[in-house]
């Protein structure tokens, strides 16, 4: 770090202090508070808190609703991030080629970034409405063939479709940048050795893209959860029958609708642990496969 040359005791801290204060108040303190309330019970009528040990965890872990919600959360994390990354990867590989439509595609594929997940939720609810939407004619022919309001599988499909739509830009930008950073010489050398473009895709581009793929996988897992709230709140409200009641949504309902602060905080702690575990596992199992050398 040869750039670190200014000497001052106070100035760097003064510079960093504003961000550290904001981070402390609105990132670290909420985490601490979640742990606090996970081990305390709020007294009724605003009378402070009482330490209850593991009682909150026992209550949460003993409810079947929590386990189905946790299962749905894991399923969503894996399938939502997996499907959106796969779509973005295919699009990035295609957009990396110098075709006539590539510049247009590189621009348009970022547009969903400007559309809030809640907005696209509102739009997809309308487009995929079983009686008024684009699939309504199918329902006239075969009643019940598409009904995301009552059929959980249909609801999930609708959710993933909306999620892929809104999650394309982020992965697409990073993967395309990774592809463009692959030196042309490697392509030329591969071609000299007789490797066609499909072969080079598999043996040069994909292996050299692993650092970007890794970043995208790690970030998209947390991102899929934060985007899920807007989609679920506008599209499914956790239904049908709790099938899409992800923890993010359940915590919101428990905390803000049922005023169960301790229960919501306990589930927050569990959810944060879940995300941290998934991220950690990715580092353990995926990072070894990343090829950093070019």
């Amino acid at each position: 770090m040869k750039q670190a040359i200014f000497r001052s005791r106070l100035l760097p801290w003064a510079l960093a202090a504003p961000q550290l204060i904001v981070l402390f108040l609105f990132f670290y303190l909420p985490i601490l508070l979640a742990f606090f309330w996970a081990f305390h019970l709020e007294q009724p009528f605003g009378g402070g808190s009482q330490f209850v040990g593991l009682q909150n965890f026992r209550r949460v872990l003993g409810s079947a609703e929590f386990w189905s919600s946790a299962g749905a959360t894991l399923l969503y994390m894996v399938l939502a991030s997996g499907s959106s990354i796969l779509a973005a990867l295919i699009l990035a590989l295609a957009a990396d080629r110098a075709l006539k439509v590539s510049p247009v595609a590189r621009n348009v594929f970022l547009w969903p970034k400007a559309v809030a997940s809640a907005s696209i939720g509102v739009v997809f609810v309308f487009i995929l409405n079983p009686y008024l939407g684009i699939l309504a004619p199918l329902n006239d022919l075969w009643p019940g063939i598409w009904n995301p309001r009552t059929n959980a599988v249909h609801t999930w499909i609708m959710l993933f479709a909306a999620n892929v739509w809104s999650a394309i830009p982020f992965s697409f930008i990073i993967l395309l940048a990774g592809l463009q950073a692959i030196p042309q010489e490697l392509h030329k050398a591969g071609a000299m050795d007789g490797a066609g473009p499909w072969r080079r895709l598999r043996d040069i581009q994909l292996p050299l893209l692993t650092p970007q793929l890794f970043v995208v996988i790690v970030l998209e897992v947390a991102d899929s959860l934060s985007g899920s709230f807007g989609l679920i709140d506008t599209m499914t409200q956790g239904g049908p029958g709790g099938a899409t009641n992800l923890l993010v949504y359940k915590i919101y309902a428990d905390g803000f609708k049922a005023y169960d602060l301790s229960g919501a905080a306990t589930q927050t702690v569990i959810l944060m642990a879940l995300v941290a575990c998934v991220t950690g596992l990715q580092y353990v199992f995926l990072e070894r496969k990343v090829k950093y050398d070019r």
Partner: peptide, 22 residues
């Protein structure tokens, strides 16, 4: 590290206690 760690856990995950702080 304190700044970068915050990328991993979005606000949506800790909404209830962030509300309390605010």
């Amino acid at each position: 590290a304190a700044a970068v760690a915050s990328i991993m856990l979005p606000l949506e995950l800790m909404i209830i206690t962030a509300y309390q702080v605010t």
